[in-house]
Amino acid sequence: MAKAAKKAVENRHYDVVLAPHITEKSTMASEHNAVVFKVSGDATKPQIKEAVEALFDVTVTKVNTIVSKGKVKRWRGKPYKRTDEKKAIVTLKDGDMIDITSGI
């Protein structure tokens, strides 16, 4: 018997999940089966759930999103606006885990 072919991951999933968000607070959340990702600004919760399940082969139980509005700063006296960013806190099923240090 031949090995079962691994299902190919669609490119649109890589457009939804941009990068892991690694901070002290997100590492403390990982003790409770939660992982924090930077996601696309127009991504919805079902899209984020589908992308994480496809990319990392885990089961997602809950997705919470946060939109951080960009601050207005000054550089050489002229104001500019930092870009807005959207983060997703993804809670995984007990027993599942994602090692964000290994990459995709």
Rank of each mutant, 00 (worst) to 15 (best):
A19I: 01
I89Q: 07
D42C: 02
P46Q: 11
V58Q: 01
T61R: 15
K81Y: 09
N64F: 02
V36E: 04
I66T: 12
T91V: 13
P20R: 02
V90S: 00
V52K: 02
D94L: 08
T27R: 14
A34D: 07
K6C: 07
T83K: 14
F37Y: 13
N11A: 15
E10A: 15
E31N: 14
T23C: 09
N11Q: 15
K25A: 12
K45L: 02
K62L: 06
S26D: 02
D99V: 07
H13Y: 15
V35H: 06
K6H: 08
E24M: 05
I100A: 10
Y14A: 06
R12F: 05
V63M: 12
L18D: 02
R74D: 00
V39F: 08
A5H: 05
M97V: 03
V63S: 11
P79Q: 13
V58D: 01
D84C: 07
M1C: 06
K6Y: 10
I98M: 04
G70Y: 10
R12P: 00
A34R: 14
S26W: 04
I100M: 12
A54P: 02
H13L: 08
E53N: 01
A51K: 08
P46F: 05
M1N: 05
K71G: 10
T83E: 13
A2Y: 10
H32Q: 11
F37Q: 01
E24G: 15
A19F: 11
K7W: 01
K81I: 08
V39K: 08
E10S: 14
P46K: 09
K93I: 01
L55K: 09
V67H: 04
K71A: 15
A34T: 12
A2N: 12
E31W: 10
E31R: 14
V52W: 07
N33E: 09
K45Y: 01
I22K: 12
H21C: 11
A88H: 00
K25I: 07
K3S: 12
V16A: 14
S26V: 09
P79N: 13
T101E: 10
D99T: 04
R74Y: 12
K69P: 06
I22D: 12
Q47R: 11
K73C: 10
A54T: 02
K38S: 08
R76N: 11
G41A: 05
I104L: 14
R82T: 10
T65A: 12
D96C: 05
V63H: 06
A54H: 02
N64L: 08
K38V: 11
S102R: 11
R82N: 15
A54G: 01
K73D: 09
N11K: 14
I98F: 03
P79Y: 08
K81R: 15
T23G: 09
V72I: 15
I100D: 05
Y80K: 03
V9R: 01
I66M: 13
V36M: 09
G95R: 01
I89R: 04
S102V: 10
S30L: 00
K62Q: 07
G95A: 06
P46V: 08
Y14M: 06
D84F: 06
E53I: 04
K78N: 11
A54F: 01
V67I: 15
R12A: 00
K45M: 05
V72D: 13
A54I: 00
A54S: 03
T91Y: 13
M1Q: 07
